[in-house]
Design a protein around this nucleic acid. Sequence first.
DNA 1: AAGTGGTCTAGACCACAAC
DNA 2: TTGTGGTCTAGACCACTTA
Lengths: 258, 258
Amino acid sequence: MTANQTSKSKVETIADYLRERILEGTFPSGQPLPSEETLAKEYNCSRPTVQKAVAILRGEGLVVTEFARGSFVRSPFLRPSITRPRGVRRDASGSYADADGLRWSGTDSDAPATRTDAPVELADLLGITPGEPMFTYQTVRASERSRVREIHVTYVPFSVVADTPLEESTPPRVPDLFTAFEKLGHRLHWTEYVRARMPLPDEASALRLTPGIPLLYVLRVTLNQDNRPLALEETRTPGDDQEYAYTYGPQGRRTAGD
Amino acid sequence: MTANQTSKSKVETIADYLRERILEGTFPSGQPLPSEETLAKEYNCSRPTVQKAVAILRGEGLVVTEFARGSFVRSPFLRPSITRPRGVRRDASGSYADADGLRWSGTDSDAPATRTDAPVELADLLGITPGEPMFTYQTVRASERSRVREIHVTYVPFSVVADTPLEESTPPRVPDLFTAFEKLGHRLHWTEYVRARMPLPDEASALRLTPGIPLLYVLRVTLNQDNRPLALEETRTPGDDQEYAYTYGPQGRRTAGD
DNA sequence: AAGTGGTCTAGACCACAAC
DNA sequence: TTGTGGTCTAGACCACTTA
């Protein structure tokens, strides 16, 4: 059988047609697609069929649909407007700051520390047993000037602050937490893990994500000189609107003067 | 009007119901959902309505649908099976290697270098003018042992290799390219940019991505001691099956002995 | 053979935007 | 008012898996 290949469905045909036009620029970014009615007539099919095709493109991040207005072309390939350097800076006085230098507004303080029992995935990274209690800070925060949003959660195991001055009250937040750790004699370094997934509905609304936009998911572990994990941060950000930047030199041999 | 809130659509109702069950573990990972027929009867609606609900969960990465078998629960929250350290190692002899130490099989060599004119986004990072010619290596590669797949493209501007011994033939591939750069007297460091987006159909099939799985998109720029960009690599990987790891110490002041 | 998802129709009514 | 997308029906037929 030469025609073993299942013939393309109408939905795919329409989706492919629209995608081609978008990628080649016939339908430039910002432009509305032809209306569903128009496409239905053009392809001699029903509106639900067209809708399904458009839904595919929406899932690819190629269009955003606005109610009663139309579906508009967007490009997920452009460099994002915001690049956030990752890393931790320390000034001469020993104060720490995140390398991106972003200042967060309002919503930052609305969540008091809570007590959580460590779920398995996180316990593993913190080197504690699942179920061990941790201080937990959850914030949904927006930067002051740019329109960066992120969900940021910090976990500090009770066992880390036990028998230290930090035990008296809830530990400070990042990056002051780092300064506090240093005062306790810890020398800090970090490992972070990056992956991506689609947001759940509550994440999508918290981050104002339109359909078809994934989530960048970063776990950062703070370790001391003995590689003991002290804290864990979980950051969820829109995958398209911004990017993370990492800088490094060659490893294994020090670059002279570095 | 207290009931200003638009009532939830049937589709959303069903999707929410299924999502809850999945997240709370009533429908554990690997289990099939009830059949579309069953759900349609249960919710007193038509099959297309149920299908739309399932499509939403698929888009969230919570289920995978297998033809004529059913829709199965999956969890996008688990730590991936593979962690790939990012960075470049150099041994005493000056040879470079990627820090993840992966070895790529077969498909690596099937793409000869081609000549491409720099598109705007890349030209910017390479510090060249858009349209300038570049050597381009594109490979879709799979690791030998794990089932890591990635699309990897390397760009080397002609202007970088002009008037050097590399001009004679096409430049070697990463990481040998780095070694070659070093022999030319360059001292190398890197900056990489990470973001995420949904795959296009051809990317999805090349990486064997099921619907609802985003793409991790990394651009790595190789720079020399004068911050001159020498090469650019573009890596596209599944966002769920693997994660990237970055390690760093505090910046701004050297840690003693580091 | 029975069960499952894939596709598609030809409408209908609704809610909202823009004019 | 007109045009747009949002939702939903009640089927139908198809392709494939499993037993």
